[in-house]
Simulated assay, not measured.
Amino acid sequence: MPLFTINPDKCNKDGLCAADCPAGCIVFEKGALPVPHEKKQAYCLECGHCVAVCPTDAIELARFPVSAVRQDKALKVSFAQAEQFLTGRRSVRSFKDKPVDREQIASLIKVAEFAPSGHNARPTRWAVAATPEAVATIASATAEWMRGEVEAESPVAAKLHLAGIVRAFDNGQDMICRHAPVLAVAYGPKQGVTPLQDGVIATTYLELAASAAGLGACWCGYVMAAASLESTFDSVLGVPDDCTVYGALMLGHPARRYTAIPPRPEPSVTWL
């Protein structure tokens, strides 16, 4: 099967697709239609650069036989808007007692699928506890793992102050998942090109998308710690044996709104 198809009625034969292909999979000769490279086409990343750069929507990837979506120039974000959005982002740990629509969660995860990925491997998968009850089950399992660490007087118990977290949990205060209505867990293969980095970036994309959608989000470090340090904990999250957790995000409608941007120290930069 060819890598792509070209609509000869749309192609203006400018060679942009070949020039922009990061793997050199496309051959272009002036005056002719682009064609797959005889040998290099095997290295196609399916990244879509050829589709994105084509000004006439003339190219279509074989794996994704759908038309490209043109970017809306009216939605272009200015640097000032991006700066305020990014600097104004807050980790939200207090949520309203209000469910989050499952379709909205799915749409946010769909956006996260566009996160950068090494070799465009996109190995990140998601396990989503989409109800407060499901999140509470995970929080309880995490608390039991913590309890075992505290009883064993392990170094991690002291480092992460687990005794206090367990006491609070026993008293009805969930400092693990913060009574969030949704917990999205990013996982991927233990081996691969860059599965850890891909999972972290995808989770970050999800956090930013959630913020733009008016939801609050916060990384759930205790669940990630349990998944990392307890070999049987992945089963609680529905993560396959050959995979591991790379990110976990609490999601919900924020109980409070943040209207100011707190200061940060000047960045440390070494100019080379």
Rank of each mutant, 00 (worst) to 15 (best):
V128N: 10
M146E: 05
H179Y: 06
P155Q: 12
K159N: 12
Q173K: 13
A163P: 00
I176S: 02
T131W: 05
G148R: 14
A129L: 07
W145T: 08
M175V: 14
A130K: 08
T124Q: 04
L162E: 06
R125S: 13
P123A: 15
H179I: 00
T142V: 01
S140F: 14
A136K: 15
R147W: 00
W145I: 08
A127C: 08
T137Q: 15
I138T: 12
M175T: 08
H179N: 15
L162C: 07
P132G: 12
A157V: 13
K159P: 00
A127M: 13
G148Y: 09
I165L: 10
V150G: 08
R178H: 12
V150E: 04
A134H: 10
T137C: 10
D170Q: 11
V156Y: 01
H179D: 12
T131G: 06
L160E: 08
C177H: 03
H161T: 09
V150Y: 03
L160Y: 09
D170P: 00
H161C: 09
A127P: 06
A130V: 13
W145G: 07
L160S: 06
W145H: 09
S154R: 04
A143T: 07
M175D: 01
V128I: 15
V128P: 02
T142E: 04
V150H: 04
A157E: 14
A168Q: 07
V156A: 13
E151V: 03
A134S: 15
R178V: 03
A127W: 13
T124I: 12
K159M: 08
L162T: 01
S140D: 15
I176G: 01
C177F: 06
A168V: 02
G148C: 05
R125M: 11
S140P: 04
P132Q: 14
A127Y: 11
I165V: 15
E153M: 03
P155Y: 08
R147Q: 06
A136F: 05
A134I: 10
